[in-house]
Design a protein around this nucleic acid. Sequence first.
DNA 1: GACATCATGTAAGTAGTTACATGATTCT
DNA 2: AGAATCATGTAACTACTTACATGATGTC
Lengths: 183, 183
Amino acid sequence: MRILKYAILGLLRKGELSGYDISSYFKEELGQFWSAKHSQIYPELKKLTAEGFITFRTAIQGTKLEKKMYTLTGNGERELAAWLTKKDPIPETVKDEFMLKAYFISALTREEADELFTDQLVKRKEKLSDLENSYHELMTSSEDADSFSSPDFGHYLVLTKALERERNYISWLEDILALIKKA
Amino acid sequence: MRILKYAILGLLRKGELSGYDISSYFKEELGQFWSAKHSQIYPELKKLTAEGFITFRTAIQGTKLEKKMYTLTGNGERELAAWLTKKDPIPETVKDEFMLKAYFISALTREEADELFTDQLVKRKEKLSDLENSYHELMTSSEDADSFSSPDFGHYLVLTKALERERNYISWLEDILALIKKA
DNA sequence: GACATCATGTAAGTAGTTACATGATTCT
DNA sequence: AGAATCATGTAACTACTTACATGATGTC
């Protein structure tokens, strides 16, 4: 698999980045669909360098803070392109702890189930609200983010997908809550 | 975390099961939201036994095939109940390799993007069709699966959620494909 | 008799998280 | 001066996958 490898190669296609920069991207919208901790990123950068997919130069921040700025090599670009155009089967399982609990709902009373599902609904609505703010921000800062030729199209894709995912979760939760409350 | 622990405890709440039986459940609808390979299940069963959450008796299948039938202990039931009613924060990241590729769409030509998204759409539609078949099966075999008091309600929940997830994915893919094709 | 399925385990390796460890820079 | 953020690394551990290994049962 080694998907983190491709996540890093993909992020580097626009220019040089430090390990810290890569980590920051995973805290933004991309983090809705992929992320990694710095303790996983730094060793992966070392490995990708050894494999010849990326190289780095050492830059100085301020007077002595050293940071490594990584860039894609030709080999790295080809490796990325091969992965991007490859058609994978869709995964059988997308793990969701809340849905695992839902499967065991017969172990709960109606009141307990109502509480659990209501709590989930509240949290999903909060998240939707955050995503809607990000969406409005993107659409006001970028004129044509929803156009294939825009450099913001990838950003637009992950944001709209995350928005739809949350809206879909909320509407399902509301439907199920109605069934839970039905005498 | 140890979510597999709770998945096993939850499956055992209805009666005794072998490791193989647990593995079979992960290949059915529950597998849409949680699964584990047998190489992870058997050691976990051993651990849960040592911790006193489950016990087993040895049963004979045929004339000499031994299998271990596991049941919940009182401690196991309490452990399960505590997890089931606990309200967790929603995860920041739900990993999706296709969406990671989507984020990097600016590295693809319009034709490549069209191919990638069309392939995903075809696969999602096939999966939706499978899930619809399972849904019709459930609804004909069980009169009131959509009622809180039905023993099939948990099954109904995972199936309807998986169905909605795929429908949502499909409609988003169709919207984006229209944008990709737009000159 | 062959093949699919039932049944259980371990070994080795990869992926990912949490904790340990350090130090510089920027902003208030 | 203190706090938040920038910046990089390793160690220990947990979670998960793939491969190795074996044997019985049921069905055609």
